[in-house]
Simulated scan of single mutants.
Amino acid sequence: MDFKSLLTNRRAIREFQDKEVPLHVLKEIIQDTCLAPTASNLQPIKFVIIHDREQIRKLSDESKKSLLDDLVRDPDLPLKQYEGALRDGQFNVFYNAPCLVLFVGPKDVYSLDVDCGLTATYFMFSATSKGLGTCWIGLGAHIRDKKILGEIEVPSECRIVAPVIIGYPKSIPPASERHSPDILKII
C-alpha cells in the first residue's frame, strides 16, 4: 500500500467483523510503533492488549461512570454532548470491538501525551496497512477504579492516554470533507 492509499484508507472504524485479531499480528503492529519518534527518545509507552469482550465492556462501564461523575461535578463540561450515550446502559464506548489496546505511560513524563499521540498514529497506520481498522476512543481513557486498573496491570505510576480499538472493519467509510490548510503566513 503506498503512502497516499494509507492516508486515504486510515479512517475511524467503529463497526467490526466478528473476527478476532491474532496476537501475532497485534505484536507486529506494536513492534512497528517502536519506530515512532518520542521526546528525547525516551520511548515511554507501554501497552495493555485486551481481547476479552467482557473485560472491554467492564472498562467501558467504568469509563462511563467516571465521565458521568465528572459531569455531576461540572455540568458545563464539553463532554455534556455525550451525556445521553453515557447514560445508555447498552452503549459501549469501545463499540463492541474485538480488541482494545491501551497506550499507557508514566504520569511524570512531560511529553507523554505527544509521545502517545505519535505512537498511536504509527499503530493506526500499521494496522491499516494490514487490513485492520482502528479508532482512538477518547471517552475510554477515564478508567479510575484502582481495582480495575490493577486487574489490567496498569502500573500506579502510569496513566492511560490512548485507548485504541482494533479489528477487521465491516466497511471503510469515505473520508469526511476536509478544509484546505490554513497557512497563517509564509516568511
Rank of each mutant, 00 (worst) to 15 (best):
L100T: 03
V109C: 05
K65D: 12
K80R: 09
V72I: 15
L86F: 13
Y82E: 01
Y110A: 15
Y82F: 15
F91E: 00
F103P: 02
D76Y: 05
K80L: 07
D113S: 12
P75K: 04
F94E: 02
L86K: 00
E83I: 09
F103W: 07
S111C: 12
Q81L: 11
L67E: 10
D70S: 14
R87L: 13
F103S: 01
D113C: 05
R73P: 03
N96A: 09
C99W: 02
N96Q: 10
G84A: 12
P75D: 05
F91Y: 13
P78R: 02
D74H: 06
Q81T: 13
V114S: 14
L71F: 07
D69M: 08
K107E: 14
L112W: 02
Q81H: 14
Y95M: 06
L67M: 14
G117V: 00
L102S: 12
L67P: 15
D88T: 10
A120K: 07
P98H: 03
D69F: 07
D108P: 03
S111D: 09
D88Y: 10
L79W: 07
G89E: 12
G84L: 06
L118R: 06
T119F: 04
G105W: 09
L86E: 11
A120V: 10
F94R: 03
A85R: 07
D88H: 06
R87F: 08
P75H: 02
Y110N: 15
A120Q: 08
Y95G: 03
F103E: 07
A120C: 10
D115G: 05
G89K: 12
T121R: 13
D108W: 08
Q90M: 14
D108N: 15
L86C: 09
A120M: 13
L68S: 11
G84V: 08
F91G: 02
P78T: 10
G105V: 01
S111Y: 07
T119K: 07
E83D: 07
C99R: 00
D88E: 06
A85K: 15
L68E: 09
P75R: 10
P106N: 14
F91A: 00
Q90G: 09
G105R: 00
R73C: 08
T121D: 13
L68F: 12
V114L: 07
K107H: 09
L100M: 11
N92K: 02
D113M: 10
A97T: 00
K107C: 04
D69R: 10
N96T: 04
F103R: 02
D88L: 00
D74G: 01
L67V: 14
V72D: 14
D74V: 11
F103C: 01
D69H: 12
C116L: 05
K107V: 12
L100D: 10
E83T: 11
V114N: 11
G84F: 11
F94Y: 14
A85L: 12
R87K: 15
V93L: 09
F91T: 08
N96Y: 09
D115I: 05
D70F: 14
S66N: 11
C99T: 09
S66F: 06
A120L: 08
G105N: 05
K65L: 03
K107I: 15
C99E: 06
Q90K: 15
V114F: 15
A85I: 03
D113A: 06
Q90V: 09
R73N: 14
D88I: 01
L112E: 08
S66Q: 13
L100R: 03
G84E: 06
K107P: 11
K80A: 06
N92V: 01
